[in-house]
Design a protein around this nucleic acid. Structure first.
Lengths: 323, 323
DNA sequence: ATGAAAGCGCTAACAC
DNA sequence: GTGTTAGCGCTTTCAT
């Protein structure tokens, strides 16, 4: 059995409360006793039981992060940034993957409840109603989706989509296809609306599609059939899959069709052709989300909305429209 | 405040122990009372506090999974498989990323302690000695590394490396470069030893290298300088970076040099040329690790060693040696 | 500066 | 079948 506070108290000849103080309010205890306690603790390999501590304090100093698909390269930078940032605030973040399953997502939220002080919901697949209901159990901040009355971190894909389409239009493309993601996706909706607001180009909407390489691969046929020479894909994974699919059909990128992705994931920077993309500030979003969450944990939940700007990174997958 | 067991007891006119039983041993309570309790619980939105429960039972029904770099595509399938498998056993797994930092790794282990029943250490960067010491605090199973006296899941990279080199040799390559990973890597060592045991080829050892695309990119110069026409890279990421670096120098793959990776990550299946690679059974390893951990949690820790076979997947990045 | 005692939410004997 | 009583490991008044 691991040593408990009692063992340390006994070994150092003081009462448990003194041991407790030594760890949570060292300044309140006589340096001499403190050293004795510390020595005994060291000796026994004692570490405070965080779960037990949480039971009395109501604070676990843990944060949970729930993500739909950990294998999407978009998330790791967000996760890492969140973890690193939380650490500076003396918090740990534990991650769980829902595998895109709303039911699993709900279960995970419940499993996390009471073991964390708050939850980061990244691109949640749950309905707004469910999210609002679950909210009573544990503080949330939602990333990449708008849920009213809740702290939220958004990345301005609408702006990014606009940039991308202007870039394509500037290159002479007159017919542009938009490949959307999963049907309920907030991001897709934003992109669609932003695209619809631009003028001077012919828009065709394709999808819905799986937000993966497979989804992009599958969309290749539709794209060629659409007659579009420019494509804005739901995300980089889709864009890369699409490029592959186009390649298989003998369509060259960017000579025949230009494609731009969204996210700016690492593989897109190393693929051939290197992907032109709307860069999402994933790391900044992770940090911001932690900040909002900690703040909301502290004050009981102000519904701040943070919107982060996006930018366009032009690389090799876009070029002049064919004549 | 969320409802506690006491509230439910009060609301349903029974004692807390009865409420407790309705949740942890329903068959021991009269169906009638049970329903009354359940109704009250439902009504108050009560859910047992898992942390408090753990305090008395000693079982959290959580598992922790610690990984060096969550952005390496090798891990997500392992993580997902572990999670899914654990769920069937009524366990949840929470993930943390050490960012390749041993110090962070140790901190995370300590943070997890007492909040999980056991830990999955994937490709740990800690020294064996530290791992053995920390082991007293929480049960481990180690994946992708040999630590004596501890439950371990290994993938037989040695065998895979042999396969890869034979494949290359069969293609006529006489000079083969081996790009190793981080200096302390167990995997690198296995590969090196297996390679050294093969005959009939000229081996050159390159590295150590970062286990990432950047590492591969950086190794391109060494590879061309080495005069090798065949390369076995530490992992797929390195292989892909290398191919990119080779491409930048005008070296064609596989026409001029053949490269094989290790892992069989998804991006490698979609890159150009599609990567020939040693497939690691990541999902199976995840499931196996959970099994071993749960078993070791149950019986106090038998040090089973599971070694999973690897195989060679030949795709497009390898071809006949140039004349 | 330290001790005593109550209690966080829950389970687990042990009675009845 | 259900209530009673401890107690898990820790923090936190309140005394002293």
């Amino acid at each position: 059995m691991a040593a408990t506070i009692k063992d340390v108290a006994q070994a150092s000849g003081v009462h448990v409360s003194t041991v407790s103080r030594t760890f949570s309010a060292p300044h309140l205890v006589n340096p001499e006793t403190r050293n004795r306690v510390l020595a005994a603790a060291e000796d026994l390999g004692y570490r405070p039981n965080r779960a037990a501590r949480a039971l009395t304090t109501g604070r676990t100093h843990n944060l949970g992060l729930i993500v739909a698909d950990i294998s999407n390269p978009f998330f790791p930078p967000l996760i890492k940034a969140a973890q690193a940032h939380a650490r500076t605030r003396d918090y740990y973040v534990f991650v769980a993957d829902t595998d895109e399953d709303p039911q699993v997502e709900e279960e995970l939220i419940k499993a996390f409840t009471k073991q964390v002080d708050g939850l980061l919901l990244c691109s949640p697949r749950l309905s707004n109603r469910t999210i609002e209901r679950l909210r009573a159990e544990v503080p949330f901040v939602v990333v990449n989706r708008e849920v009213k009355g809740m702290p939220t971190v958004l990345m301005d894909v609408g702006q990014g989509a606009r940039l991308a389409i202007e870039h394509l239009a500037g290159l002479g493309h007159r017919r542009i296809a938009l490949i959307s993601g999963p049907s309920g996706s907030w991001t897709s909706k934003q992109m669609r609306e932003a695209a619809a607001a631009t003028s001077g180009v012919d828009l065709v909407f394709l999808g819905p599609n799986a937000p993966t390489e497979q989804g992009g691969l599958a969309a290749a046929a539709e794209v060629t059939a659409s007659g579009a020479t420019g494509v804005l894909a739901y995300n980089d994974l889709v864009a890369m899959g699409l490029i592959e699919g186009l390649h298989e059909r003998g369509v060259r990128v960017p000579a025949d069709v230009s494609v731009v992705g969204v996210d700016d994931i690492v593989p897109g920077r190393l693929s051939r052709p290197k992907l032109t993309t709307v860069a999402m500030p994933a790391a900044a979003a992770g940090r911001m989300a932690v900040d909002l969450l900690l703040q909301s944990v502290g004050d009981g939940g102000t519904a701040t909305l943070a919107t982060l700007a996006t930018s366009l990174v032009v690389r090799e997958s876009t070029g002049p429209a064919p004549l």
